[in-house]
Design a protein around this nucleic acid. Structure first.
Length: 276
DNA sequence: GCGACAG
DNA sequence: ATCTTGTCGC
């Protein structure tokens, strides 16, 4: 009995993955890893400040999905929009959903992307004035076993420039936390807070970043869509008040609060119908 | 075979 | 992802 259910679940999981791999490989053909946007990135402290022509990016979106311990299939997706110059939240959207798909390493997008895309679609239909010009995603871009993580998935399907942010390293192409740690601590890298991530194959996967002066644990940045690695790093630098870039941090905080309020106000029953 | 495995 | 109190430092 026990072994049978394991066998069945194992079989469905692997056939699912095979199908998902094909989807990822197909979507990957549409992936753009160069800057492909009309706005400009505000110059950092060391850059010349003279851009009178093109308009600077104004609205940066941050997305995250939170869960409830008591009911792991219940999730709240959040999209927050920040003013790039102040990092103030100017808009927020939430969507509570029932997840039907389990989390499988390498296939995060099949769990979380539909929620994010749903929110974006709703905003786009309304021609919302705060529709983001770029998305920062809580998960990797090309730093992924097949070079197509959540940020790529969301970026391609929404056709928005996207950047992936990992709070933990997904081990790919020989990359490891230990290796990154050594490079960050290396004497020749003193003061450097960005370490390019080159795998043993020579591939550039993104970068590890010490996002605040005193943070020990780096974040992992990789382009999702329509942006280069270098530009991704410039954007992330603009957003780091704390270790986790503000757009993602706010999406994380606010999606959690949203679920807390549902719990506190006993609205869980109505969710059985609204959150399909 | 063993360990690793974004959120 | 989820939980959680105190604690350290500016």
């Amino acid at each position: 009995m026990e072994s049978l259910s394991f066998a069945v679940e194992g079989a469905s999981a692997s056939s699912c993955q095979q199908e998902w791999i094909e989807i990822q490989d197909n979507l990957k053909r549409k992936l753009v890893l160069e800057d492909d946007f009309t706005w400009t990135i505000p110059p950092g402290v060391s850059c010349l400040d003279r851009d009178g022509k093109a308009k600077r990016i104004q609205y940066i979106g941050g997305v995250d999905v939170s869960f409830v311990k008591e009911d792991p299939s219940l999730a709240c997706g959040a999209l927050v929009v920040l003013d790039a110059s102040t990092l103030d939240v100017v808009h927020e959207e939430f969507q509570v959903v029932r997840l039907k798909v389990p989390y499988l390493p390498g296939f995060l997008a099949f769990r979380e992307a539909p929620i994010i895309l749903g929110i974006l679609e709703k905003m786009k239909q309304k021609d919302h004035p705060f529709y983001p010009q770029l998305l920062m995603v809580d998960g990797n871009g090309i730093l992924h076993p097949r070079g197509f993580g959540l940020a790529c998935h969301v970026g391609v399907l929404s056709d928005l420039p996207a950047i992936g942010i990992g709070k933990n390293l997904h081990h790919v192409d020989g990359l490891s936390e230990c290796g990154v740690r050594k490079l960050l601590d290396a004497r020749e890298n003193m003061g450097k807070d960005i370490i390019p991530l080159f795998g043993k194959s020579g591939q550039a996967w993104g970068a590890a970043m010490r996002s605040t002066p005193d943070s020990v644990k780096p974040i992992y940045i990789s382009p999702g869509h329509r942006i280069s690695i270098d530009s991704s790093l410039e954007i992330v630098k603009l957003c780091c008040k704390f270790r986790v870039p503000e757009p993602i941090r706010q999406a994380d905080i606010r999606s959690r609060i949203f679920l807390q309020k549902l719990k506190g106000s006993g609205n869980l029953i109505s969710l059985e119908y609204s959150a399909q």
